[in-house]
Structures are given as C-alpha cells and as structure tokens.
C-alpha cells in the first residue's frame, strides 16, 4: 500500500490537522510503511470470526437517568482559551 501526498492532504483535512507542505512526503512514506505492516492481516480468513470489542465481551451497563454531578460550569471553563459571559468564544461562523 502506497499513499500519495494528495491522499495525505485529504486524510489530514478529514482529521483537521494542518501539515506543513514540506512534511507531506515524509508522512506519505511513514503511513505507507505502517499500512504495509498492517496488511499482513489480509491473508487471514476471518469470515467465521466475530469481532472482539471488549476482552470480557461485556455489554454496556445502564444506570438510572438521575443527576449525579454537581454543576461546576465556571470551574470547568477555567481551562478554555477564550470565554465571555459563560460562553466559549470561537471565530465567527455565520456572516
């Protein structure tokens, strides 16, 4: 498997990562190498095997829909890069 720099650009955009233009080739090489490693899986017939998501094959635990957390809005917002009047500030999204 060999990825082109255009494919890297697309993947980086999907993941919302800015990648410097002069690094594109390195990432294309790196990712192609990793995909080559991963491709060993293709030779295994797994048509009769169920996927495994949790080692104990447990199912999602449910709980009553009650409030368990206290409101710590201000405290949690202290880590935000930009806030105003209890809201997170972001660049303008609507003209």
């Amino acid at each position: 498997m060999s990825l082109t720099t255009d494919e890297i650009k697309n993947i980086a955009y999907l993941a919302r990562l800015s990648i410097e233009e002069d690094r594109m080739h390195t990432y294309a090489d790196n990712l192609s190498g990793i995909l080559d490693l991963v491709e060993q899986m293709n030779n295994v017939d797994t048509s009769a095997i169920a996927p495994m998501a949790h080692p104990q094959d447990m199912s999602q635990r449910l709980r009553a829909d009650t409030i368990t957390e206290e409101n710590q809005r201000e405290h949690f917002m202290e880590n935000a890069p930009a806030t105003e009047a209890g809201l997170f500030l972001v660049p303008k999204v609507i003209e």
Partner: peptide, 20 residues
C-alpha cells in the same frame, strides 16, 4: 478542538483554520 481546553493557535481566520 481549541475550544473548551487545550492549545489554540494564534489569530485563527475561521473555525476550520482554528481546528487545523
């Protein structure tokens, strides 16, 4: 995402630029 916590870039020109 640069919104709620963590690093945010300088002078983002729009939301996508800020994320990226």
């Amino acid at each position: 995402d640069g919104v709620r916590y963590g690093y945010r870039c300088e002078d983002p020109k729009d939301l996508t630029d800020m994320y990226m």
